[in-house]
């Protein structure tokens, strides 16, 4: 491969990592608050369909993004309402949300199948975009690509350098103690779930308005699940999301490039590669149970309700 091919490959990886990063950043915050939301896939689907429909009717992909964020946040709030307020099982609620989101996106998107919209335009960052190699790889993309990177660092700062982040971590580690200290456990969890939903919706809307600006059912195709895997892979540390997202996106993009290059491996078998990569990464990262236990938010998935 020549330099141009490498640049276009790496640039494609950065773009393909965007939905994973967005969704995983949201899920990481949610899990850090102690909520295991397995509904990312469904929330992305809802974000994708509402983003697409809004963009289709308004002609503005940006409004589409906003609609996707809003719809995702609504799903996140629904999740929080059920699991925090009504103490429903988190695993079941997340799965229900996934199935619901799938169904809703299919139902709403039914009459838009195959329709196209004008994709989100790339915004080259003046100056930076003309750096050789790096400019084309990192600084010549649409807005969400930059935002995804921004959010990773912003969340890092939030978790480790702000009081609200400290509160969120405390709520995720031990909600009973946090409550007894007078910290707002339930509001924090509601906010975290809403943020997680908004980010998943953003990720979905990015898929439908920028990545493949044409409506096709099932376009999320497991990326929500990969995002959840990514959070485990990153052992709940925001900066490590970057490496994982690029790795998983790299496998996916590499598989497409190898097809284009006429590699003689069956396309269908190749399409399993990203999922196998996640599986392999999970196995490698989980091998040391102590490391997982030390990093997992201690109250993850466990219901909490204060006495009154």
């Amino acid at each position: 491969m020549n330099a141009a091919a490498w640049i276009s490959l790496l640039s494609a990886v950065v773009v393909a990592a965007t939905p994973l990063l967005l969704a995983a950043t949201g899920e990481l915050v949610c899990e850090r608050a102690g909520l295991l939301n397995l509904g990312v896939e469904g929330m992305m689907a809802v974000g994708a369909v509402s983003g697409f429909i809004t963009a289709y009717h308004t002609g503005s992909a940006y409004l589409g993004l906003l609609a996707g964020i809003g719809a995702g946040a609504a799903c996140g709030i629904l999740f929080a309402w059920l699991t925090v307020q009504w103490v429903a099982d988190q695993v079941a609620t997340g799965l229900a949300l996934t199935i619901f989101g799938h169904g809703l996106s299919g139902f709403l998107g039914h009459s838009y199948a195959g329709d196209t919209i004008t994709a989100l335009a790339p915004l080259a960052i003046p100056g930076l975009a003309s750096i050789p190699w790096l400019g084309a790889i990192f600084f010549d993309h649409s807005l969400p690509v930059y935002l995804a990177l921004f959010f990773v660092f912003a969340i890092y700062w939030f978790l480790y350098r702000s009081r609200a982040g400290l509160t969120l971590r405390s709520v995720g580690e031990d909600p009973a103690v946090a409550h007894s200290l007078g910290l707002p456990v339930n509001p924090t969890r509601h906010a975290a779930a809403a943020f997680g939903g908004a980010m998943a919706g953003f990720a979905g809307a990015f898929l439908s308005t920028a990545y493949t600006p044409m409506w096709a059912e099932g376009m999320v195709a497991g990326q929500g699940w990969i995002a959840i895997g990514l959070v485990v892979f990153a052992t709940w540390r925001p900066l490590r999301l970057l490496g994982g997202a690029w790795l998983f996106a790299g496998v996916g993009v590499g598989q497409l490039f190898s097809q284009a290059a006429g590699l003689s491996i069956n396309t269908y078998l190749l399409s399993a590669l990203p999922y196998l990569a996640v599986l392999l990464a999970l196995v490698l990262i989980s091998r040391d149970p102590l490391r997982i236990r030390l990093n997992t938010p201690a109250s993850l998935g466990k219901p909490f309700r204060a006495e009154t």
Binding site: R163, L166, T167, R169, S170, E173, D174, V177, A178, S180, L181, G182, L183, A298
Partner: peptide, 19 residues
């Protein structure tokens, strides 16, 4: 309280910073 209201993974200063 009898069961301390301390978060194990946080430092002493972080625990106090919460309140």
């Amino acid at each position: 309280q009898q069961h301390f209201a301390l978060l194990e993974s946080l430092s002493v200063a972080e625990n106090l910073a919460l309140t």
